[in-house]
């Protein structure tokens, strides 16, 4: 016991310094005014951000669902591939993650712009007339695209790591006992992949909801997500740490609620399958 406590000490120190204390500071800012007096006025001013919160959760949820739908068959295919092929496929999934996040998002900008690659291409092949363009950038669609592109590996990898442990003979046993493809999926693969699904959803949804870079670069100035709202509270002229801290806090609570709901749905699903 002593040994494991000693070993955990650096971690405990780290957590205290960089998680517990900062969280305390956020709390302190959220419930005080400029004079350092306790107040709930920050919290009551959050109401005007309801739309922003709603949009963030909406776009984050759509991106998460798209990631899940794309990642599930992909991860399953990778998990069934053989040795070297499997390693190569995992590499290819991880490859974009080794490139800078900003760079990747800028790349999408140059693809989606009104004079970007896609519009130019459409003009060349004659789908669009000269001077015409399809508005791709600065839309909610572009934001979701950016989220899916950037966060897809975070869905694929946890799913893959769970699926790779599913023994092929278990799938064969399900077929042997009379399950068609859909029954094998619903009664064996899906329930056995649930832990990976849950951590994948968390790893995509949380950064997607709170992103501000993707919104800024691909969503233009008109779409404001909660990440952008928080950013403006800490940087520039209208900065207000107290409102910013409150927004962060509310976002955290909302995400926790969303995760709790996901967890409950998953548990029910498990009960169904069993």
């Amino acid at each position: 016991m002593m040994r494991s406590k000693t070993a955990a000490a650096p971690f405990a120190l780290w957590m205290t310094l960089f998680t517990v204390i900062p969280l305390g500071i956020v709390l302190w800012f959220a419930f005080t005014d400029e004079q350092g007096q306790f107040t709930l006025s920050n919290l009551s001013s959050i109401g005007e951000y309801a739309g922003t919160f709603g949009l963030s959760i909406f776009l984050g949820a759509i991106a998460t669902v798209i990631c899940l739908v794309l990642a599930f068959p992909l991860a399953f295919t990778i998990s069934r591939a053989k040795g070297r092929k499997q390693q190569t496929m995992v590499m290819i999934i991880m490859l974009p993650m080794w490139m800078n996040f900003l760079l990747r998002t800028y790349a999408w900008m140059s693809l989606l712009e009104n004079n970007g690659f896609i519009n130019q291409f459409l003009r060349v092949i004659g789908v669009l007339a000269d001077g015409q363009s399809v508005s791709l950038i600065n839309t909610n669609g572009a934001i979701v695209l950016g989220m899916v592109y950037n966060f897809l590996p975070f869905m694929v990898l946890p799913l893959y790591s769970v699926m790779v442990k599913i023994d092929n003979s278990v799938i064969e046993a399900a077929q042997d006992l009379g399950s068609n493809v859909f029954q094998v999926f619903g009664r064996v693969v899906l329930p056995l992949s649930l832990p990976g699904m849950l951590s994948g959803i968390t790893m995509v949804f949380v950064p997607a909801v709170s992103t501000f870079v993707i919104t800024k670069l691909l969503g233009g100035s008109k779409t404001l997500m909660i990440g952008d709202a928080i950013e403006t509270m800490f940087i520039g002229q209208g900065a207000n740490y107290h409102v910013g801290a409150t927004l962060s806090l509310v976002l955290m609570v909302l995400i926790l609620v969303c995760m709790a709901i996901t967890g409950m749905v998953d548990k029910e699903g498990e009960g169904d399958a069993a």
């Binding site: 023994d167 003979s169 278990v170 064969e172 046993a173 399900a174 064996v188 329930p191 056995l192 498990e270 399958a273 069993a274």
Partner: peptide, 9 residues
């Protein structure tokens, strides 16, 4: 099956 292949869940 050789290693039973029971459903672990």
């Amino acid at each position: 099956f050789q290693r039973y292949a029971l459903f672990p869940h």
